[in-house]
């Protein structure tokens, strides 16, 4: 559990970060909280000759809640998400999800940016960001660009981010309606066996819109447009929920691992989504 030797950098600004990324290419990685990258380095599964620590870079922190949307700096920790009253008001599902990530010690270090940028299918924030239809801001040699969360993930640890870009912020429209983040895990600190993020808007007695994303059930987060669509226009009764679950199962592609075989994961995904929809609907 000893990493290979690496050079350590602590730039003060984003152009400094990008310059290092351009200089070292594939051999450089940025580090936020380090709770994904450092274990991989210690296991020598990640070879990072040049490690760029982001903690001194200005302007990467903070939660901005506006009239129509929310912007969260990439270096904002999970603990800060949990502690923000403004955010709990604007997007309560974020707090509900963050409280189910790892444990308090990890949440003091782990960041939103690291969680979404690493591309680990086990991370909770990517699915949630897809549920929100969030936008990720990337800073590179040509300045800023944005990528929708629903288009960011290509495969496990493979994202739309270029090697010389840094993810600096996530932004999303203030979510509306009822919400639920439902997660089954084996123990505290574990990744999800299955998790579901659900936002539902109710209009009269029927569902006006629904957004559903699943976590750790494919090599990327899964935004299931069809699952949401199955609820729209219904009273979110048993049949509608079953239709949403069927649509979701069509979109996920879980693999057999220590958390269980594929049949179990599909079953649990359905149970978790059913519970999430029921809870979100009850809050809508």
């Amino acid at each position: 559990m000893i990493p290979a030797a690496f050079d350590y950098y602590r730039p003060k600004d984003l152009p400094g970060v990008v310059a290092l990324l351009q200089e070292h290419g594939d051999d450089a990685r940025v580090m936020a909280g380090g709770h994904s990258l450092i274990p991989m380095m210690k296991l020598r599964m990640a070879d990072v000759p040049h490690l760029i620590d982001m903690q001194d870079v200005d302007g990467m922190n903070g939660i901005y809640v506006g009239d129509t949307g929310v912007r969260i700096g990439a270096m904002t920790t999970q603990a800060e998400l949990i502690d923000s009253a403004e955010l709990a008001d604007a997007a309560p599902i974020l707090r509900e999800a963050a409280l189910q990530i790892a444990d308090p010690q990890v949440r003091y270090m782990g960041t939103v940016g690291g969680n979404v940028a690493n591309g680990d299918p086990g991370n909770d924030m990517p699915g949630l960001m897809q549920c929100f239809d969030a936008t990720f801001t990337l800073f590179g040699p040509d300045g800023e660009r944005t990528v929708p969360a629903r288009e960011f993930y290509e495969a496990a640890y493979m994202t739309a981010r270029e090697d010389d870009e840094v993810l600096t912020a996530v932004s999303f429209p203030t979510p509306a309606g009822g919400y639920a983040y439902e997660k089954q895990k084996r123990k505290i600190g574990d990744y999800a066996t299955a998790a579901a993020a659900v936002q539902i808007v109710k209009d009269g007695g029927s569902c006006a819109s629904a957004s559903i994303a699943m976590t750790n059930l494919s090599d990327t987060p899964v935004f299931s447009e069809a699952a949401g669509a199955a609820l729209v226009g219904t009273s979110v009764d048993g049949d509608a929920i079953r239709a949403a679950v069927a649509a979701m199962l069509n979109d996920i592609d879980p693999v057999d691992d220590n958390r269980g075989p594929v049949a179990f994961k599909n079953h649990v995904a359905g149970v978790i989504l059913t519970r999430a929809i029921e809870r979100a609907w009850s809050r809508a």
Binding site: Q184, R186, T193, R259, G260, P261, A263, F264, H267, V268
Partner: peptide
């Protein structure tokens, strides 16, 4: 008796 093995018990007993 972790989650999936307990689930498997129920599944094999036809409880799903």
């Amino acid at each position: 008796h972790d989650h999936w093995r307990v689930w498997k018990i129920a599944n094999q007993l036809g409880l799903h």
